[in-house]
């Protein structure tokens, strides 16, 4: 879409809005310089920021096991995965920046508790098997949520999601494979895997958000083609994928009501504890405070590093403006082996 925003005046807003709606309906991509309703922009910033925050807070529960990974191969996989999540955070903060909100601003909102991240990361990783359960279930749920976002109406977000989804499927596979090794391993390893799945199953189902009739932002997001499927639809899709996978893993899912519903062609599952969901969302999960504190501490302890980088860049810019060489460089003159600046 190429409808540019008018330089002055709002008399054409109605016309722009009509053009915007038509473009969205025609499945065209909205690009950063296109006109868009303020509410659309705000809604996207909110969603992309929350997504970006989830990527970087999500590094913590898994990073918790990097220094204890039980084999060098697993350690390399886990480090690479946690690094990918940092990369996802970068892509997403960049996507949010195209809407006029900087990464610094969004981080401030996160640190001040004014923006959220996915509640799933407020659960602790108690054993090594939790790394597998997170990959299989949490990354698995993320993929189910995110694949439709690759067709989101906002171009930069959709494109970020294409890159992210490719990596998420590697994350899901490594988690599944990790659990399989445990499940087929010693008795203690099998028990560790089962325990992790028991703890992560229900929180994973909550990742799709509240039931459709209670979801605050869903209808408008669907109309704007940001969202494509309802929370309950996606949750059902996820359950249908996981049940046979759990069987192949030789693990059970902690839901006695889980049965194949012939009529609907889907698995029926038991009631979700939405009270728990709301409590964790309100900040009362096992790790809410710990996660946000670690984030704030890293940010605060890194302030002097960021300030140094800014100060150095400013000095360099000043020097190149004046064709100035630092006195240290002049002393060395041409004997300097390589210019490292």
């Amino acid at each position: 879409m190429t409808t540019m925003a008018p330089d002055a005046g709002t008399q054409d807003d109605a016309a722009y809005e009509a053009r915007f709606n038509a473009a969205v309906a025609a499945e065209e991509r909205i690009e950063p310089r296109d006109w868009m309703p303020d509410a659309y922009r705000a809604s996207l910033v909110r969603q992309i920021a929350q997504h970006a925050h989830s990527e970087i807070i999500g590094m913590q529960p898994e990073a918790n096991w990097i220094t204890r990974a039980p084999s060098l191969r697993r350690k390399a996989i886990l480090m690479a995965k946690v690094q990918d999540e940092a990369g996802h955070g970068l892509y997403l903060y960049s996507a949010a920046e195209t809407l006029g909100t900087s990464r610094d601003e969004l981080l401030d909102r996160l640190h001040a508790g004014r923006q959220k991240y996915s509640s799933i990361f407020n659960y602790p990783t108690l054993t090594w098997a939790d790394v597998g359960a997170i990959g299989w279930l949490v990354d698995g749920a993320a993929i189910t949520n995110q694949v439709p976002l690759c067709r989101c109406s906002y171009g930069p977000y959709a494109r970020a999601m294409v890159r992210i989804c490719k990596e998420e499927s590697f994350h899901q596979r490594q988690g599944y494979e990790l659990l399989l090794a445990l499940s087929k391993g010693t008795e203690a390893q099998h028990a560790m895997a089962q325990d992790a799945v028991n703890r992560w199953w229900w929180p994973s189902l909550m990742m799709f958000g509240p039931p459709d009739d209670e979801s605050a932002h869903s209808a408008q997001s669907m109309a704007w083609r940001i969202k494509r499927h309802s929370n309950d639809e996606l949750r059902q899709r996820f359950v249908d994928i996981c049940v046979p996978q759990a069987e192949s893993l030789g693990l059970t899912l902690p839901d006695p009501d889980l049965t194949w519903d012939e009529e609907r062609g889907h698995y029926a599952f038991g009631p979700i504890d939405w009270d728990e969901f709301r409590e964790v969302l309100r900040g009362n999960g096992p790790c809410n405070e710990q996660r946000i504190n670690q984030r704030r501490t890293a940010h605060e302890e890194g302030a002097w590093v960021r300030e140094a980088a800014t100060a150095y860049a400013a000095k360099q810019a000043e020097r190149s403006r004046h064709g100035y060489r630092a006195p240290q460089d002049q002393q060395q003159g041409d004997t300097q082996e390589e210019d490292i600046a």
Partner: peptide, 13 residues
Amino acid sequence: GEWAGHAPVLEEE
């Protein structure tokens, strides 16, 4: 590896 989740800026993660 001990830096994961503690770096001063995302690029350094």
